[in-house]
């Protein structure tokens, strides 16, 4: 697959779709809690003034994820 990249590499206002989750079972649970599964739409919002975490718009809620966590979510620009 082309154009696939970690969520942490997206920029402000970029919209992307989840393609793959590279996470342990425990982390997977936590992603499920937020409704992050395959093809979930994620809009990248602002970065914290200290550079990390970054806020994302996920299923109607604003969620802040640290870089280490966002790296585990692989996304693609279009559905």
């Amino acid at each position: 697959m082309e154009n696939i990249k970690p969520l942490s590499k997206t920029v402000k206002n970029e919209i992307s779709y989840v393609k793959k989750l590279c996470a342990s079972e425990d982390e997977l649970r936590r992603f499920f809690d937020l409704g992050i599964i395959k093809n979930t739409k994620i809009e990248t919002l602002m970065k914290s003034p200290s550079g990390d975490p970054t806020a994302y718009f996920i299923r109607g809620a604003v969620m802040a994820l640290r870089r280490e966590d966002a790296e585990k979510i692989l996304v693609k620009g279009d559905d």
Binding site: E27, L34, P53, V62, A64, E68, D69
Partner: peptide, 11 residues
């Protein structure tokens, strides 16, 4: 080490 962190920013 710091573990993963998820924080909601409510409206």
């Amino acid at each position: 080490k710091s573990s993963s962190f998820i924080l909601e920013l409510p409206p």
